[in-house]
């Protein structure tokens, strides 16, 4: 049998992932749309995987500089994105505690 082109397999994954994303994101409560944006920022920093390979495995100077820069930029998002999301979500938690305290009064 003919071997299926890997691009086709990637396309299948792509289409299915969009479908999953579409349904998951419509379920996000509008109150959390800003955290949604910052967390998707962090998630799209997954390109760090490609950046790491480029930084570590390239041999030419061009490749290494590009890889290093890509790792640094993506790391800003990985760390910054998740931390700022956590900071925002903590704010939503604090309030909730207060409500419970208020209710028990």
């Amino acid at each position: 049998m003919e071997v299926i082109n890997p691009t086709i397999i990637n396309l299948i994954i792509f289409v299915l992932a969009i479908y999953v994303g579409y349904h998951v994101v419509w379920n996000v409560t509008p109150a959390l749309h800003t955290p949604l944006m910052s967390v998707t920022n962090a998630i799209s920093a997954i390109v760090i995987v490609g950046a790491m390979l480029a930084a570590a495995l390239t041999e030419t100077l061009l490749g290494q500089i590009m890889g290093l820069a890509a790792v640094a930029l993506a790391s800003v998002n990985v760390v910054g994105g998740f931390l700022v999301t956590r900071r925002m979500l903590e704010m939503f938690k604090k309030k909730q505690k207060k409500v419970i305290e208020g209710a028990s009064k």
Binding site: S38, A54, E59, M66, A70, L73, A74, V76, N77
Partner: peptide, 27 residues
């Protein structure tokens, strides 16, 4: 902050693509 972070991802993607064209085997 969010706009700034988008620019980081965009630039990072460009850098990776340049590295990939320069040394496809490494990637």
């Amino acid at each position: 902050l969010v706009a700034f972070m988008h620019s980081m991802i965009g630039m990072s993607a460009v850098f990776i693509a340049v590295a990939a064209v320069a040394e496809p085997k490494a990637l």
